[in-house]
């Protein structure tokens, strides 16, 4: 356990191998259920649907590595979509409105970070309260109306393709690369792991713990804000109840990806694999005409089995 400060060498390969294996089994099984499953266009359809949760899961990866949690991302998704829709309906340029929607998300995350570091309230409680506040603001601003009638150029962000590739996939891949490199190769990334392993030791080693945490939560909010804009473009309407419960989907992807909820371990590759596994299972079962409720049972079971497997592996490694 003392080697945790080198997460790349110890924890990650195992949990990712388990995931790749799971993914292969899932793909083979889904293919036997439905012939429509194993095609390039269907693969891209999966990525189109999972992008929003994927963006939130990227931010959530950093948050969980620091040993925190962000339950407010689903509400941030709703609020930034509403902010954008409200401003656009009020006559603002669509791109400026979208930008301000993303900025709203970042502001929400910044507020979370300030409350956690300055007021010293645990992340679970802060984001539980802001989950209600941000959702409430979305409801209050919109007065439960939805905002629509967006220009075609904007809708392309969520419903357009470049060749066979959905537009938002480029965004997800680009951001995943960015976050992945920062996490694995930069000082900031090392700080994130250090805080998750031991915040007190990190502080004494000169890590600017509070500043890093504020950045991490701001990034989580920003990515959720971006997810809100993409979601609005995909379904062509902003509603105050958009994204309810998606925080749990994002956490599921991160935890499936092998991150420890206690902090200190996790990776972007793992999160993307976890995201893909959930997406593949949902899509494959849908194509095989298996109703959503049975999908829920299967996904819940996969989560528990994956975590159990990881736990066994971790205990084994700990003993050796």
């Amino acid at each position: 356990m003392s080697l945790k400060s080198r997460p790349r060498t110890l924890n990650i390969p195992w949990s990712e191998l388990v995931l790749v294996l799971g993914l292969v089994i899932a793909v083979l099984y889904m293919n036997s259920l439905s012939p429509a499953f194993l095609s390039l266009s269907n693969f891209f359809e999966i990525t189109r649907i999972v992008t929003e949760v994927g963006l939130m899961a990227l931010g959530m990866t950093l948050v969980i590595i620091t040993g925190g949690i962000d339950l407010s991302v689903g509400s941030v998704l709703g609020l930034s979509g509403i902010t954008m829709g409200f401003l656009y309906t009020a006559g603002l340029n669509i791109w400026l409105a979208a930008l301000l929607g993303v900025a709203t998300g970042a502001l929400c995350g910044w507020i979370n970070g300030q409350l956690i570091t300055r007021a010293g309230i645990p992340p679970l409680i802060v984001t539980l309260a802001t989950l209600a506040i941000f959702r409430g603001l979305a409801l209050g601003i919109s007065q439960a109306h939805s905002f629509g009638n967006y220009p075609k150029a904007f809708l392309a962000l969520g419903a357009g393709y470049l060749g066979p590739v959905p537009n938002q996939l480029f965004l997800l891949v680009l951001l995943a690369l960015g976050v992945g490199v920062v996490l694995a190769r930069s000082t900031f990334g090392r700080f994130v792991y250090a805080i998750g392993n031991n915040p007190t030791a990190a502080r004494f080693s000169g890590v600017p713990v509070n500043r890093v945490l504020v950045w991490v939560y701001t990034l989580s909010g920003l990515l959720a804000g971006l997810a809100g804009v993409i979601f609005t473009a995909r379904v062509s309407s902003a509603r105050s109840d958009a994204g309810i419960g998606t925080e749990l989907d994002a956490i599921t992807a991160v935890v499936l990806g092998g991150a420890s909820i206690a902090g200190g371990s996790g990776s972007v590759v793992g999160t993307l694999l976890g995201l893909l596994l959930v997406g593949v299972v949902r899509n494959g079962l849908t194509l095989a005409f298996i109703p959503a409720e049975q999908q829920a049972i299967i996904i819940g079971a996969i989560l528990l089995v994956a975590v159990l497997l990881n736990q066994v592996i971790r205990l084994r490694l700990g003993r050796n």
Binding site: L248, V255, P291, E293, I299, G300, A301, L303, L304, V307
Partner: peptide, 16 residues
């Protein structure tokens, strides 16, 4: 995580 998993499973079983 346990209860995140069981919450998903329970809801599914109820609807089933």
């Amino acid at each position: 995580i346990v209860t995140l998993g069981t919450l998903t499973v329970i809801r599914g079983v109820i609807i089933l």
